[in-house]
Amino acid sequence: MSRAEQIAEEIRHRIVTGMLRPGDVVPSTRAIMRDHNVAMATASRVLALLQDEGLVEATPGRGTVVLAPAGADPAVLTADGVVGVAVQIADAESLAGVSMRRLGAALGIPTMAVYRYVPSRDDLESAMLDRVLGEVAVPSPSGAWRTDLEGAVGALWQVMVRHPWLAGALSMTRPAALPSAMAMSERMLACLVEAVGDPVQAFTDYLTVLHFVRGVGLTLELELSDLAETGLTNDEWVDTRLSDLRRVAPPEQFPTMNAIMAAGYPYDADVLFESGLRVLLDGLAARE
């Protein structure tokens, strides 16, 4: 990194963290020369780099000032609005598709200007998770632990269906502290404590349920990706592979598998979720 790039990075940091706000004057060429002991050519290069990024502009009579982001609806250019656009990109393209560059392009602002609204990519992802988990509409308590648990888990599943990237973004071992997830977690834990009595066992069961929901949820984005790549639904893709399956699973050795292939299996993630949740809840109920 050149000396000009180092100094530009210092000023850029002050802009994206809000220390220098739109309209504020940034250090002049002479100030940069004095404060950093560099030649005029280097100081001029610093300001040129910041101008090329769309962060500053030269104004007659004032010098170089921080440029207000342009190109997007001002109502969107807030921390909440930027996170909302990031969620839209993830819904359409996957979480991996949400880069600061991609987000800047969608907002119509320079990439570095995105940092004015979200400090880092990690902070952006946490904000996205918190936002979509805030959509989990936990039903009012009924007084029956199984009904209430099923309602909370079902509400989480519906949000996963709306946001197929969500399951993959959730960490089950080192979860982020997400305020919007607290009401859902509290309801599920309260239901399980009522069901099993022991808080430690209840927390184990809570993690088991979450692992199950996340596991089925992971198939949502993968299936959408496969559909986009092949143009075939899961059932259509399986039809193209039946001959291969029958070759590796001859009926005299694998009669049960062949009976299922002959009957056909209509893959449906919602059916898997509902069936698996029922089995889990039946098991919990049997321990009462």
Rank of each mutant, 00 (worst) to 15 (best):
M1E: 05
R3V: 12
E5W: 04
Q6R: 10
E9R: 14
E9F: 06
R14S: 08
P22N: 13
V26Y: 07
A31C: 02
I32K: 01
I32A: 05
R34N: 06
D35H: 08
N37Q: 14
V38I: 07
V38Q: 01
A39N: 09
T42W: 04
T42P: 06
A43P: 03
R45W: 08
V46F: 01
L47D: 02
L49S: 06
L50M: 07
D52K: 15
P60V: 08
G61W: 02
G61R: 00
G61P: 01
R62Q: 10
T64Y: 03
L67R: 09
A68D: 02
P74V: 06
P74K: 03
L77N: 01
D80T: 13
D80R: 12
V82Y: 05
G84W: 11
V85Q: 00
A86R: 01
I89H: 11
A90N: 11
A92V: 00
E93A: 09
E93D: 11
S94W: 02
S94H: 13
R101G: 01
G104I: 00
G104M: 01
A105V: 05
A106C: 09
L107S: 00
P110V: 09
T111Q: 15
M112P: 11
Y115S: 07
Y115M: 05
Y115F: 14
R116M: 06
V118R: 09
V118Y: 09
V118M: 09
V118E: 07
E125D: 08
E125K: 13
S126L: 15
L129T: 03
R131P: 02
P139I: 11
P139L: 09
G143P: 05
A144W: 04
W145C: 00
R146H: 06
D148I: 00
E150Y: 03
V153D: 00
L156T: 12
Q158P: 06
M160T: 10
H163G: 13
H163P: 14
L166V: 10
L170A: 06
M172T: 01
M172L: 04
P175R: 04
P175T: 05
P175I: 02
A177E: 15
P179L: 05
A181D: 06
M182K: 14
M184V: 10
S185M: 11
S185W: 11
E186Y: 08
L189G: 13
A190E: 01
A190S: 11
C191F: 02
C191L: 06
V200L: 07
Q201Y: 12
A202E: 04
A202G: 07
A202K: 02
T204M: 08
L207M: 13
L207F: 12
L210K: 09
H211G: 15
F212V: 14
F212P: 13
G215C: 02
G215M: 02
G215A: 04
G217M: 12
G217W: 10
L222Y: 13
S225Y: 08
D226N: 13
E229T: 11
T233F: 05
W237R: 15
V238W: 13
V238Q: 11
D239G: 12
P251M: 13
E252N: 07
Q253M: 08
F254M: 05
A259L: 15
A259C: 10
I260R: 06
I260C: 10
A263L: 15
G264H: 01
G264E: 03
Y265N: 08
V271M: 15
L277R: 05
V279G: 10
G283I: 05
G283E: 07
G283D: 08
A285W: 01
